[in-house]
Design a protein around this nucleic acid. Structure first.
Length: 110
DNA sequence: CGATTGACGTACG
DNA sequence: TCGTACGCCAATC
């Protein structure tokens, strides 16, 4: 359904498999708005208010950089969770980003 | 309704 | 290769 743009972002974010990450642009692209990467990040800003708990820590920028870690309860919580899922994070930078990258417009396809 | 902001992305120098 | 500028989309003031 054509829920709010925010809702779609949350839905996709929850679909991110464990040990995988995605980028704001990838989600935006999946929402038929490849240029709405900024809105995706904005949506994540409200993700804190979501009850289900959006795995925003699995969402990073195009560079695989944890740009949004500063918005978590703790700036280290993001990388800590990522490493906990098997993702290697080096100084806010996701290692093997291409390997752990989970693109909804590719994995979910169609 | 207009202006500003933001967890981005791409282009240009 | 690195830094700065501009554009896009949605929400908030």
């Amino acid at each position: 359904m054509e829920n709010d743009f925010f809702l779609q972002v949350y839905q996709v974010a929850r679909l991110i498999p464990k040990g995988r990450v995605t980028s704001y642009g990838a989600i935006a692209k999946y929402l038929s708005s490849p240029r709405a990467s900024r809105s995706v990040g904005y949506a994540m800003n409200a993700a804190h208010n979501q009850k289900p708990g959006v795995p925003a820590h699995r969402v990073v920028n195009r560079n695989g950089l944890l740009t949004g870690k500063h918005h978590f309860h703790s700036p280290s919580e993001m990388e800590e969770k990522l490493e906990k899922e098997g993702i290697k994070v080096k100084k806010d930078q996701v290692q093997n980003f291409d390997k752990v990258l989970w693109d909804p417009s590719v994995e979910l396809a169609m």
